[in-house]
């Protein structure tokens, strides 16, 4: 039995250790070093710097601006996207819609489009001189500094609404139908049933999708990276991951590692406390 367990667990365990745990440790280790030069052109030597890099991270204005930016993005985009996903799932499940298979498939289709490709496609649709929708793009510049964040929010929403809808919808299908019978006898209408029965029943699915959305938001990379070629409003430090990338290409790996560690920690804390919060509320 012991051998069998080892056979099942060891391969994954080895890869997980090698490509998950060790890199995390290595990032932390790297972030504790700093490069010192003797004079301006002297040879560079790596010396242990303790928390020097972290001091720099915490005093780095653009980095915290970018954190603020993705938090704002998430605070708006995640509720809108999941609200839409929930609304569409409830509508699909309400019995009012014909052709459910068709709609389910069409709404899910954008999930097949990689973020990079979706961003390129929408970038063309937004660009005033490339877009077929000139009436819109000549009236409002969707790529301007004030709107480009929300233009990207639309790209992310477009890709993920159907995916989240499907997760919630699958949870709805698992609800035993006898519950609805009882509600019907009690005279509950479509809205009442949705609010008092369906939404509480699918709460675990909503929590799951929220956690993944929070993680995804803080990691925002492909969309802003692609949008840099469509809009000058997207700087090289627009999101935390872009900061990591541009710092690494200086190259300043020690500082970039420190950025990575802080970002990972922030993500972990945020998603973990959301999970704990919902658990305390008795959702899960």
């Amino acid at each position: 039995m012991k051998k069998a367990i080892l056979f099942f667990v060891a391969p994954f365990g080895a890869l997980f250790t090698l490509f998950y745990l060790i890199p995390i440790g290595y990032a932390i280790w790297q972030s504790l070093f700093t490069v010192e030069r003797t004079g301006t052109f002297g040879p560079a030597t790596e010396v242990f710097g303790g928390l020097t890099q972290y001091k720099q991270v915490f005093s780095d204005g653009p980095f915290w601006e970018s954190i603020g930016r993705v938090l704002l993005f998430g605070a708006v985009q995640v509720p809108v996207m999941l609200g839409l996903a929930l609304f569409l799932a409830l509508l699909l499940d309400s019995g009012l819609v014909k052709g459910r298979r068709f709609f389910r498939l069409v709404y899910f289709l954008p999930y097949a489009v990689p973020g990079v490709v979706a961003a390129i496609m929408w970038g063309y649709l937004y660009s005033p001189n490339l877009s077929p929708f000139t009436e819109v793009t000549s009236a409002v510049d969707l790529l301007s500094p004030s709107l480009v964040l929300w233009a990207m929010a639309n790209v992310v929403t477009w890709v993920y609404v159907g995916y989240n809808m499907l997760i919630i919808y699958s949870a709805l299908l698992a609800v035993p139908t006898e519950i609805y019978e009882a509600a019907k006898i009690d005279g509950a209408g479509v809205f009442r049933t949705a609010w008092s029965i369906k939404i509480p029943m699918v709460m675990p699915a909503i929590v799951l999708t929220t956690v993944f959305s929070i993680i995804g938001t803080l990691q925002l990379l492909a969309e802003p990276q692609v949008f840099r070629s469509f809009s000058s409003a997207v700087s090289s430090t627009y999101t935390p991951n872009l900061t990591v990338l541009s710092t690494a290409s200086i190259p300043n790996f020690h500082l970039a590692a420190a950025f990575s560690v802080v970002l990972a920690l922030a993500t972990f804390v945020l998603s973990f406390s959301f999970l704990k919060f919902t658990q305390r509320k008795g959702v899960q």
Partner: peptide, 10 residues
């Protein structure tokens, strides 16, 4: 819960 992008650099 660890973002995959945080692993890319290390």
């Amino acid at each position: 819960l660890v973002p995959a992008t945080a692993l890319a650099l290390p």
